[in-house]
Simulated assay, not measured.
Amino acid sequence: MKNQNSSPTLWTKQDTARYLRSSIKTVDRLLRDGRINGFKIGRKVLIYPDSVTEENINLIRPKFI
């Protein structure tokens, strides 16, 4: 019997960087730009894996000066 109350899987910045084959700075930039979704608990940042899609990563946002 499967556990119905299992918590959703969340990724750390390190997990996300490993998945994207990029650096943690890149993950920080994606979070700051709003391209991927996450939240902070104390010093730890947790990221929703379903927000880490190619469509979100390649989203071009104009920079306004």
Rank of each mutant, 00 (worst) to 15 (best):
31 L>E: 02
31 L>S: 02
61 R>G: 12
43 R>N: 15
1 M>R: 13
1 M>T: 13
64 F>M: 13
50 D>K: 15
10 L>K: 04
54 E>V: 15
18 R>N: 11
23 S>W: 05
17 A>G: 09
11 W>I: 10
32 R>W: 06
25 K>C: 03
2 K>Y: 06
12 T>S: 10
15 D>M: 03
8 P>N: 06
51 S>V: 04
65 I>M: 05
32 R>G: 03
22 S>M: 09
55 E>Y: 13
20 L>K: 02
18 R>V: 12
28 D>E: 03
21 R>M: 03
35 R>T: 06
50 D>N: 14
58 N>V: 12
43 R>F: 10
1 M>C: 13
45 V>K: 00
4 Q>L: 15
10 L>Y: 05
10 L>R: 05
51 S>L: 05
16 T>Y: 00
7 S>V: 14
11 W>M: 07
65 I>N: 05
28 D>R: 08
56 N>S: 11
55 E>D: 11
54 E>C: 15
32 R>S: 10
9 T>E: 01
16 T>G: 02
43 R>C: 10
14 Q>H: 04
49 P>S: 09
8 P>H: 05
5 N>I: 10
23 S>C: 07
1 M>F: 11
40 K>N: 06
65 I>L: 08
45 V>R: 01
50 D>S: 15
22 S>N: 14
6 S>V: 14
23 S>Q: 09
44 K>W: 12
41 I>F: 01
61 R>T: 14
48 Y>E: 11
38 G>M: 08
50 D>Q: 15
31 L>P: 02
49 P>N: 05
37 N>M: 08
39 F>N: 12
39 F>Q: 13
1 M>E: 14
49 P>F: 03
46 L>W: 15
25 K>L: 03
48 Y>A: 11
5 N>Y: 12
52 V>M: 00
21 R>N: 02
22 S>F: 03
58 N>K: 11
6 S>K: 09
59 L>Y: 13
28 D>P: 02
28 D>F: 00
24 I>Q: 01
54 E>F: 09
29 R>V: 09
23 S>E: 05
59 L>F: 11
49 P>E: 05
38 G>C: 05
